[in-house]
């Protein structure tokens, strides 16, 4: 179980999160939804130790992660695919993937996971010696997710995985995320503006607005909620 409790975060004078709490049970997919500037990315960044909360607690499998440096959080099994994808443009595809296995927990499995990633993304196998900067947006997404898998995470966080990608690629990405969860037991927290597609695979969802959780529920309940239909689904 991944738990965020009463998280408050500020950029200098400006407070952007006001007591956010959420839970991601083992082996489930949870969606964190909200419009631009609601504080979704800040929540993820804080969870990864890239920002310091002024108040609140973050824990993963009963281990307190608040105020722990990023690389240690990664080594404890949490991995974030950032909004900007985070592929190293000047490094080759293979080097990008190998760097995924940098955490000590992942290094012994490097070769095996690499094989697995190449099975999932045969395209990356073909292009392994190419510089990541020369890839298309969809291929970079593959590198980003492939690199995440190389770290052998127990839980994957994805920040706007649909951003800037063609609909078909978005669909494939979400299908893959669902498969990784259902077949390999990966816990997933996905942050999206595209509510439709996120709720298509999620078990549970939270709505974030102006730095606070304003609604939550199972996928079915959320989809049935009239306010959410009006605000996010355009129904």
């Amino acid at each position: 179980m991944f738990i965020i409790e009463n998280l408050h975060v500020s950029y200098g004078e400006l407070q952007v999160l006001w007591g956010v709490s959420l839970k991601v049970p083992q082996g489930s997919i949870v969606a964190l939804l909200g419009s631009n500037g609601a504080g979704k990315t800040t929540t993820l960044k804080t969870a990864m130790g890239m920002m310091k909360p002024t108040q609140g607690r973050i824990s993963f499998r009963d281990q307190d992660l608040t105020l722990i440096p990023t690389h240690k959080i990664v080594n404890s099994g949490l991995f974030l695919v950032p909004e900007w994808r985070g592929t190293f443009a000047t490094l080759s595809v293979l080097e990008n993937l190998e760097l995924g296995a940098f955490p000590l927990r992942a290094r012994p499995f490097k070769d095996k996971t690499l094989e697995h990633v190449f099975e999932l993304f045969p395209r990356l196998h073909e292009r392994q010696s190419q510089r990541a900067g020369t890839l298309s947006g969809g291929e970079r997404q593959m590198v980003a997710i492939g690199r995440a898998l190389m770290a052998k995470p127990d839980m994957l966080m994805l920040d706007e995985p649909s951003l800037g990608l063609a609909p078909l690629i978005v669909q494939n990405t979400f299908k893959l995320i669902e498969r990784l969860c259902r077949e390999e037991g990966l816990t997933v927290l996905v942050v999206e503006q595209n509510v439709n597609i996120a709720l298509g695979i999620a078990d549970y969802g939270y709505i974030l607005e102006n730095g606070a959780i304003v609604g939550e529920g199972t996928t079915d309940n959320l989809l049935a909620d009239q306010r959410i239909q009006e605000a996010y689904l355009g129904i």
Partner: peptide, 9 residues
């Protein structure tokens, strides 16, 4: 930033 997210100290 990305390097930190990849688990690099």
């Amino acid at each position: 930033r990305t390097a930190a997210l990849a688990g690099i100290d």
